[in-house]
């Protein structure tokens, strides 16, 4: 399974990479390649130019910046899973991503850019809030977590933009992630998954995101509204799929996936509330 022919450049800096994207509208960024290479092998994507940003220095650190944690574009899922700076929801989602070899190569930023609804860390990112930093030759902009995902495999990044950093607010409280993996338990992409952040153990002030079931990882605003008015996690979870078009796929019917979303919303909320106390 070979990709179609393409040109390859290992960029030495973000500026160089941004210029290459600007000059070559058919180009694609590559970080770890764990989603891009399979897509190219299947010939679902055939970029004329691959701009490898994997060697750019300075992009693979996790930093505490006082009010937020800054995660460089080349930080891999494994580093997220192992870092004490990362909130529990995201740590857990990263630890449950793929397998050890995948986590050694796959980046967190790449998972956001790839925008697969079945991915784990993007769901945790939406619940935790925060922003991504997108750079192009004209400058940079920040995009809020819940505005990063547009449609199936479509992020808010423009073709000439490079995601350079993910910023997660240090909001305190507690957070959690839970899912059913395609290979059972927590293994492999999520059939359905949910992440929750709560300000304190009452859970009234919270952010909850659901992944796996629709087209994008999405905020479960119905659940958040119910929690704000004092509902129990179990009752609030009944509204898990409000506003989400649940899609049947190889892994389950609409009914089954809707049921799973409720189960994981409840579990994520309960665990986040326990983690907050």
């Amino acid at each position: 399974m070979y990709p179609r022919e393409f040109e390859y450049v290992a960029a030495g800096s973000v500026e160089e990479a941004a210029q290459l994207l600007e000059d070559n509208p058919g180009a694609k960024v590559m970080s770890g390649g764990m989603s891009l290479i399979p897509m190219m092998k299947l010939r679902l994507l055939s970029p004329e130019l691959v701009v490898d940003i994997g060697r750019i220095p300075g992009l693979n650190t996790i930093e505490d910046r006082g009010d937020h944690i800054a995660i460089g574009a080349l930080v891999r899922q494994r580093q997220i899973a192992e870092s004490p700076l990362i909130p529990m929801a995201l740590k857990t989602a990263a630890a449950q991503t793929g397998d050890a070899q995948v986590r050694n190569t796959a980046t967190f930023a790449g998972a956001i850019a790839h925008a697969d609804v079945a991915a784990d860390t993007p769901t945790a990112f939406v619940a935790l809030g925060g922003t991504i930093v997108a750079k192009c030759v004209d400058g940079e902009r920040e995009i809020a977590a819940d505005a990063c995902f547009v449609d199936t495999l479509t992020s808010a990044l423009e073709a000439n933009e490079i995601l350079t950093e993910v910023r997660i607010p240090k909001s305190g409280g507690g957070s959690a992630y839970d899912k059913l993996g395609r290979r059972g338990g927590h293994t492999d992409y999520s059939v359905a998954g949910a992440a929750a952040w709560v300000a304190d153990s009452s859970g009234r002030e919270c952010r909850v995101a659901v992944g796996g079931v629709g087209t994008i990882p999405a905020l479960a605003s119905g659940v958040m509204e119910a929690m704000a008015s004092g509902a129990s996690p179990e009752d609030a979870a009944e509204r898990a799929c409000e506003g989400i078009t649940v899609l049947e796929d190889l892994y389950g019917s609409e009914e089954y996936k809707s049921h799973l979303a409720k189960v994981f919303v409840r579990r994520a909320l309960e665990q986040a509330m326990a983690n907050a106390s």
Binding site: Y8, A10, G33, I37, P38, D52, A100, Q101, N104
Partner: peptide
């Protein structure tokens, strides 16, 4: 020094 899957890595990435 890390275990990876070489079917999902380009030879040029290993330069």
């Amino acid at each position: 020094g890390e275990a990876i899957k070489s079917c999902t890595t380009l030879a040029v990435q290993a330069d």
